[in-house]
């Protein structure tokens, strides 16, 4: 970046340069950022602004808050809001517990192939979420492994497992899909834990649960919080998993946006739900970023 170094070289008060002008060449630094920011503004910010505008523009014409009051009165919206929040919170809790246990074993009770397993988890992250729901259909669906086992064993015509179309199915799928997002930062944090510290604790007679509680958990807390924050936002935004369960009675804010806009053609209503959804996710994501900046910011500053 030509501009930036030239500018830095010219910065600062200099009293006695003998009247020689500081030569600045090329484009000043901030200008280089203009093209990508402008592009993003056009295809991301401008459309978002139009969504907000549309939420105040009922189909009847003019501008009013009618779409908002309408949407807020609908039972379906309130259910979707509640579903979104509790499923996301529950999934996050599940991911944290599961991810902590699994990462703990990979990091501290190593077994052959453990490295390969963490690679597998990386691959897992590259696949779309709805594949999990698709797989769960074959495992717990009305025709599927679990019910098949039951019918094979008992001779009954149908199995007892039927929760996929309920919010619990969504919860299970989200816990499965998002757990790796918790494990990754945790594994990174665990690799920083000094093994000498663990050995010292063990030599002092501390048993494993105590070591986990008093040595490992405090060390992992920041990454646990960061991973949890990210998963919470991703769960709030999750669409594919909910769509693929095909449950009409399980709607969340994203699926409500979809059904209002595409199925009902109610754009102002969809925009209202969208604004609520964005406000919820972005504020939580802001908190998450602040948290991450707090935990890693010091190190990054020192490195700069």
């Amino acid at each position: 970046m030509a501009s930036a170094s030239a500018e830095r070289a010219g910065a600062g008060p200099r009293a006695d340069t003998g009247g020689r002008p500081v030569r600045r060449r090329g484009v000043p630094g901030p200008l280089w950022a203009v093209p990508p920011v402008a592009a993003l503004g056009l295809v991301f910010l401008y459309p978002l602004a139009l969504v907000v505008k549309q939420s105040f523009s009922p189909d009847a014409g003019g501008h009013s808050t009618r779409p908002w009051s309408q949407v807020f009165q609908e039972q379906s919206f309130r259910t979707a809001l509640w579903n979104t929040v509790w499923i996301a919170a529950g999934s996050t809790a599940g991911c944290l517990v599961l991810g902590f246990v699994l990462a703990l074993v990979i990091a501290f009770v190593p077994f052959p192939g453990g490295k390969l397993l963490s690679r597998f988890i990386d691959v897992f992250l590259a696949f779309p979420s709805f594949l999990i729901t698709l797989a769960l259909l074959f495992v717990y669906g009305t025709v599927g492994m679990a019910n098949g086992l039951w019918t094979d064993a008992t001779g009954a015509s149908s199995g007892p497992v039927d929760f996929l179309h309920t919010p619990w199915g969504v919860l299970l799928a989200e816990v499965t899909y998002f757990t790796p997002f918790v494990m990754r930062p945790l594994l990174a944090a665990f690799s920083q834990v000094d093994t000498a510290q663990l050995e010292a604790a063990a030599s002092l007679g501390a048993r494993a649960p105590r070591i986990v509680r008093q040595v490992i958990l405090p060390e992992a807390l920041p990454s646990l919080a960061a991973g949890g924050g990210l998963v919470l936002v991703l769960c709030l935004n999750e669409f594919g998993i909910v769509l693929f369960t095909g449950a009409k009675n399980t709607t969340t804010l994203p699926t409500l946006v979809y059904s209002k806009a595409i199925l009902d053609g109610d754009y102002p209503g969809a925009c209202v739900v969208a604004v609520v959804s964005v406000a919820l996710s972005v504020s939580l994501y802001g908190l998450y970023r602040a948290l991450v900046a707090r935990t890693t910011g010091g190190a990054r500053r020192a490195g700069a």
Partner: peptide, 23 residues
């Protein structure tokens, strides 16, 4: 080398004031 900028004073190389020059 030009990787830090003096708040005051000059750096000369071969008699040439390079204080404001990029590295």
């Amino acid at each position: 080398a030009g990787f830090v900028t003096p708040a005051a004073g000059r750096v000369l190389i071969g008699g040439r004031d390079v204080t404001g020059l990029p590295p």
